[in-house]
Computed example of a mutant assay.
Amino acid sequence: MSPYNLNETESLLVCVACGTQFPTSDRNTLKTCLICDDPRQYIPPPQQSFTTLADIRSKHKNTFTPFPNNPSLISISTTPKLAIGQRAILVKTPAGNILWDCLTLVDEDTVSEIKENHGGLHGIVISHPHYYSTHVEWADAFNCPVYLAVEDKQWVVRTSEKQVFLDGGKTETPIEIGGVDTGIKVIKLGGHFPGSLTLLYSSNLLIADTLMTTPSAISNFSVNALSEPRTRPKGVNTYAFMWSIPNYIPLSANEIIRMWGILKEYDFAATYGAFEWQNVEGDDVKGRVLQSMQIQTRYMGYGEHPFLHTLF
């Protein structure tokens, strides 16, 4: 196999809104982005527009930020903000490294940083199509597989032999590197997209926006303005469960309850969402997921639903 050439595909068109790379450089043939035309996403005004990886590389860079309370996780973000603005998370295991979600920008500095300072990259897991970005470029740069949900295959616009589509009949997929178990479990919850994924590693649940972390999730309710002790107010949520995040369309009560039926079987003490501020840690995190599901169910008009009496 010939070495990956970072510059070979830098003229391919990239959607400005979502950061997805398409397999063409011809602006006359690519006039819209199927991911942004889907009602879960949107096209910003004034119109659909495209850029290239070459242009992105001239204006942006990736930054690496270790998680303060978790040495096995490193956040990777693009500055200034690019497209949706999500972060990727490098998950470091004794068996090797897995990238959770993906960024559009991949360049020599990023590849060098991961290979030389973090032990390389051995696989990529992407939560849902809004973060498909340039995952084929990443997979080629590191010669590694990229795991996607088969239910969401219709939104793949660049194909590659490195793409591995997770079985539609499986809720849980352990991730191995060279036949060695990493300890990572990919859990398919659905909801936002039919195949929306989460990743569980060492009691850390990486959720992207399969569970959408809300601003009240990070509120300090432990003290009041005079630093006096207090408790978290009743009825304040930590997560929302959305079919479309930017267009504010919630999931149905039945879908939320189905998702809990899967998630209740797993233990976790932290969730890490798609953006830098979306870190929720503590022994009560799993209970806060259930409480948030019950809050949303109640205010969608199901005040008498038996699910509201489900206990953690």
Rank of each mutant, 00 (worst) to 15 (best):
S2N: 14
P3D: 10
Y4N: 09
E8F: 13
L13M: 09
V14G: 03
T20W: 08
R27Y: 00
R27V: 05
T29N: 06
T32C: 02
C36Y: 14
D37W: 01
P39S: 01
P44V: 02
P44T: 12
P45T: 08
Q47S: 12
L53Q: 06
A54C: 06
A54I: 03
R57M: 07
S58V: 00
H60E: 01
F64Y: 13
N70A: 12
P71L: 00
T78V: 10
P80C: 11
A83V: 04
I89F: 04
P94C: 11
G96L: 05
G96N: 02
G96Q: 10
N97Q: 13
W100A: 05
L103R: 03
D107E: 04
E108F: 01
E108S: 15
V111H: 07
S112L: 06
I114F: 05
G119A: 08
I124M: 08
V125H: 00
H128P: 02
P129I: 15
E137L: 15
D140C: 01
N143Y: 03
C144K: 15
A149Y: 08
V150L: 10
V150Y: 08
D152Y: 01
Q154I: 13
R158H: 00
T159V: 07
Q163N: 14
Q163T: 09
D167P: 00
K170I: 00
D181A: 15
T182C: 12
G190D: 01
L197Q: 07
T198C: 14
L199I: 01
Y201W: 15
S203M: 15
A208P: 03
L211C: 06
T213E: 05
N220W: 09
N220R: 13
S222V: 05
S222R: 11
N224Q: 04
P229Q: 06
P229L: 06
P233R: 11
F241Q: 03
W243T: 09
N247Y: 02
P250M: 13
E255I: 09
I256D: 01
R258P: 00
D267R: 09
F275Q: 11
E276V: 02
W277S: 09
W277F: 10
E281Q: 14
E281S: 15
D284H: 14
V285W: 14
K286W: 12
K286I: 07
R288H: 12
T297S: 06
R298V: 00
R298F: 13
R298L: 11
G301W: 06
Y302E: 11
L311F: 00
L311N: 10
